[in-house]
């Protein structure tokens, strides 16, 4: 009696769990997984022909769409611009965030009004990218304050001329990304630093280590996992950069550096939703984007992971195994 009750109870517990997680999986399958699979399928399909002529099942075109996409000027520009703008923004973002995080967590400095500063630094991230895009657009348009500065230093010849220059456009985007995200990175890094056992710092200071040494020898190595996390999430976000450059560069108003700040997603959106609605080609570009992002993430993950520690762990395991074998041999 007791045993049969046990089995029943176990089974029903499982069912309950499934019902609870079902909504997520249903939404995920319908709105994420299926489009994802279709993206891969469409990348190899002549979608338009397939759509018009529904009698035939397959319009498989192999790698054709990949070849066309890769040969295109817009594609090359976009695949150059996006990582360049990401790197331009991410390096200062990480450095400033690291600096602020180590100040805020430093026991010796004890920064006053920390909460206030954290809120201020995090603030740009709360605003929508569109708002920020429009804000900066007003700065750089004729009569905007940056435009006026450029006139007064002689970079722009007259008041009716827009600010030109490849690197200016990219710089603006990189700056906005930096400004929007350094607060967020800082908060994440602070959490990482606070997670370090304080006894390490105590022991180090008793041994006479300087603040600089503490930072390099204790803080930095121990927050490496968290830095890997921000680096990889930022990389993925960076490759999908869209809203800010689109606000700044898509309108006729800023067509001046449209080509210099066109990102991959802007390019994909352009070919998918204008002209002849080349969905298949857009999917091919998306697949390439996915592959590049995946490869870059893996490389970063490999570079950032603590190889010495992993090696040590493997060696330890091997020793234990050998020891066990030896013991077994003895018996």
């Amino acid at each position: 009696m007791a045993s049969s009750f046990k089995t029943r109870a176990k089974l029903e517990k499982n069912y309950c769990g499934y019902i609870f997680i079902a909504p997520f999986f249903i939404t995920y399958i319908v709105f994420q997984l299926m489009p994802l699979i279709n993206t891969f399928r469409y990348a190899f399909t002549d979608v338009r022909a397939w759509f018009v002529d529904q009698s035939q099942t397959s319009h498989f075109v192999g790698m054709d769409q990949f070849k066309t996409v890769v040969g295109e000027m817009g594609f090359k520009e976009a695949f150059f611009n996006t990582p360049v703008m990401w790197i331009m923004g991410f390096i200062p973002q990480l450095l400033i965030a690291l600096l602020l995080a180590s100040w805020f967590t430093n026991e010796k400095i004890r920064v006053k009004g920390q909460g206030f500063f954290k809120v201020i630094f995090y603030m740009p991230n709360i605003m929508t990218a569109t708002t920020i895009g429009i804000l900066f657009l007003t700065f750089i348009r004729p009569n905007g304050f940056i435009h006026n500065i450029c006139i007064s230093i002689g970079y722009v010849k007259n008041a009716r001329m827009p600010i030109t220059g490849t690197w200016f456009g990219r710089g603006v985007i990189a700056f906005i990304n930096f400004w929007m995200w350094y607060g967020q990175t800082m908060i994440v890094l602070i959490a990482g630093i606070l997670g370090i056992n304080p006894s390490f710092f105590e022991a180090a200071s008793i041994d006479g280590a300087s603040g600089w040494q503490c930072f390099w020898r204790i803080t930095l190595p121990l927050i490496r996992p968290i830095m890997t996390y921000s680096l990889i999430t930022s990389l993925i976000g960076g490759f999908q950069m869209f809203d800010v450059p689109n606000m700044i560069g898509a309108g006729e108003t800023a067509a001046v550096f449209k080509r210099d700040i066109q990102t991959i997603i802007m390019y994909i959106k352009g070919i998918a939703y204008t002209g002849s609605f080349a969905v298949g080609k857009a999917c091919a570009a998306s697949v390439i984007l996915f592959l590049i992002t995946a490869v870059c993430s893996l490389i970063l993950f490999y570079v950032m992971s603590d190889r010495a520690e992993a090696k040590a762990r493997r060696a330890e395991k091997k020793r234990a195994k050998e020891a066990a074998l030896l013991e077994g041999g003895d018996l």
């Binding site: 000027m73 817009g74 001329m161 001046v256 390019y267 352009g270 070919i271 002209g275 002849s276």
Partner: peptide, 22 residues
């Protein structure tokens, strides 16, 4: 504005359009 040559600018129209008109 960006100082491209006339011939390049005319060629650019075709390149740009070819991206979206497959």
């Amino acid at each position: 504005v960006n100082g491209m040559s006339l011939d390049d600018a005319i060629a650019y129209i075709k390149d740009k359009a070819a991206e979206t008109i497959t």
